[in-house]
Design a protein around this nucleic acid. Sequence first.
DNA 1: AAACTTGTGTGCGTTATCGAGCATATGCTC
DNA 2: GAGCATATGCTCGATAACGCACACAAGTTT
Lengths: 299, 299
Amino acid sequence: MNAATVCDDVRRLPGQRPERAGKSAVFSTTVPRVDRQDPAGNLLLAALTAADYGQLLPILEPVALPLGRVLHEAGGPRHYAYFPTSSVVVLVNTLRNGASTALAVAGNEGVVGISPFMGSESASYCAVVLGAGHAYRISCTALKQAFERGGKLQYLLLRYAQALMTQMMQTGVCNRFHALDQQLCRLLLLNLDRLPSNRLVLTQELIGQMLGVRREGVTEAAGKLKARGTIQYRRGHIAVIDRAALEASACECYAVVKLEYDRLNPVKSQAAITPVLQRRQEFTKPLDQIAGNAFAGFH
Amino acid sequence: MNAATVCDDVRRLPGQRPERAGKSAVFSTTVPRVDRQDPAGNLLLAALTAADYGQLLPILEPVALPLGRVLHEAGGPRHYAYFPTSSVVVLVNTLRNGASTALAVAGNEGVVGISPFMGSESASYCAVVLGAGHAYRISCTALKQAFERGGKLQYLLLRYAQALMTQMMQTGVCNRFHALDQQLCRLLLLNLDRLPSNRLVLTQELIGQMLGVRREGVTEAAGKLKARGTIQYRRGHIAVIDRAALEASACECYAVVKLEYDRLNPVKSQAAITPVLQRRQEFTKPLDQIAGNAFAGFH
DNA sequence: AAACTTGTGTGCGTTATCGAGCATATGCTC
DNA sequence: GAGCATATGCTCGATAACGCACACAAGTTT
C-alpha cells in the first residue's frame, strides 16, 4: 500500500483494461460514464444541509480507489474516513487461521470508517475496495469534530451506522444458514446496487474470500447461474443479464438489507423492492411466534 | 408477554427453584447474593459523571427480567432501553424459516436498546433474556434526550455501540468457521462473564437456538466438555468447573470480544485475558499479509 | 509465436452438521 | 409414590461444503 498511488487514475486497473472490439455483446457494453466526480455523488453527503456541506467541502479530498486497496487494517489506526461515490468497499473480518468473511458492503450510500465518531481509534475489521472507483476522504479528526457539532450530520452518520449494524447481523445469520448459491446472489446484488453498470470486476477466488468459502464452491454456484442465463462471466468479469432472476435466487438477506438502506434515503425509488416489502411481515415475526421455539411458555 | 409481569420477583423462575439439600457439591453451591440492586451495578451507568448519573437516576426504573422475556421484538418499536445489572440479554436475528442465531450477548457492561439514540425507532434483531436477573429500564425518548445532551454519556453509549458491533462481526465469522464445540465454549464464557456465579440456567435446546445448531449437536459438544471435567450439567443447569479449560477450548472469538469489552472499562482487571493479549498481534494481521490472499499484488 | 501467470472446470474421498426418530432420565405436580 | 412434561442421549442415512489434485483456458509478457 503506497501512499503515492492514492490518486492514480482508476481507469487503468488490473483486469479492467480498455476493451478490444466486442467479442461478446454483453461484455463490450460501454460502462455509463457516471463518474459521480462530486462529493454529492455520495448520498450521505448529498443529504447534508447546505451549511454542513459547505463546511465539509474544503476538507474533502478526492481519491481513486483501485481494486484491493486496503483502506483500514484490522485493529490498526484509522487516519481517514471515506465517502465512496463510485467505489464499493467491503468490511472484512479475518480469523487467525486466515479465513475471512465480508460482513458488510458499503458504497455511495454511506461512509467507510465510523470508528472515529463512535469513540474508538480502531476497529477489528478491515476495509477493502471490492469495486474500483472514486471516493472522498476526510481526516478522522475532522470527521469527529463535524460529528460533535451535532445536527443533521450527526443524525445521518448514526443512522447509517445503525444500518451498517443491521447489515452485519443479517450477514452473520446468512453465513450460518443460507446455501452458497443464495449467498453468491446476495453478494452480487449488494455490489451491483452500488455500481453504475451491470458489470462487476471480481474473480471467483475473491468472491470465495468474501463469502468465506472455497473458490471451487463459487465456480459451481456461478456455473449454475450462468447455465440459467442469469449471469455471464469470463476471467474476473461478471455481467448480470437477468437481475430479476438474481433477486429471486438470493436469500431474504439481500432484501432485508436493501430495505434497511432504502429507509436511509427516502427519495430513492423503492420500485425494485416492492415484492419484498410485502413480505416484510414475515421478517419481523417475533421469536416466540416461531414453531418449535424453546421460549414458548415462559411469558 | 404480559406487561403486568414485568416486575415479578426474579427469584422464582422456571428451572430455578429453591434447591433441596445438595445432591451434588457443584450444584448446591449457594449463588453469591450479588444482586447489584443499584443502577451502579451497571458498569455503563457507573462510569457516568455524578451530574449525568443524577439526572438519570429518577427516571431509571428497576425491573426483574425472567428467562425468555422478549425485551425487543424484531422490527418492532422499542419503548424502553435496558441497563442490565445482574441479567444477561442476547440479541437474536431470526430468519423467515425460523432459524435464529444470537449475534451478541449483553450484560451489566452495557445497554440493550441502542436504536433510540442511533436514530431509528426499530431494529431488525430481537432482544431476549438468557440469564434471569435485574435491570434498570429507561424510556427510549428519555435516553435519546440524555444522549443528545452530549458529554460523557454520549461518549459511553457510542463506545459501547461500537463494541457491540465488534461482537456482532466476530460472531458472524465465528458462525461460519468455528466448530460447534468451540462456539459452545464461547457462548458459555460470554454468559459466565456477565453472571455472578459459575452456574448458568440454560437448556441444550436453548443453546442450540442461540448458536443456530441442532439440539443434538449441543448435546454432543456438551458431553465432550463434561467428559473432560470442564463442566457439569443436569436438566437446564450448567456449572462451569474448570474455567481455564473452557477458555482453552473456546475459539479466539471469545478473546477478541472480551478484549474489546475490557477496553470499555479500564478499571476492570484484565488478568484473565493476559495470554490472549499477547496473541493480539495475530488477530490484527492485515488481510494482505495472510497466505493465499487474492489481494496480494494489487497495492 | 512461445512462455508464463492467472482464472476456471472437475473429480474424489473426507467431514461436520443435519433431520428424523426413538429411548431414557430427571424433576415437577398431584 | 404415580403420572407427566421435558431434558438429554443415541443412531442412521443424507447432504453441503471441504481439501486436494490436476487439467485446461484466457490473457499478458517476452
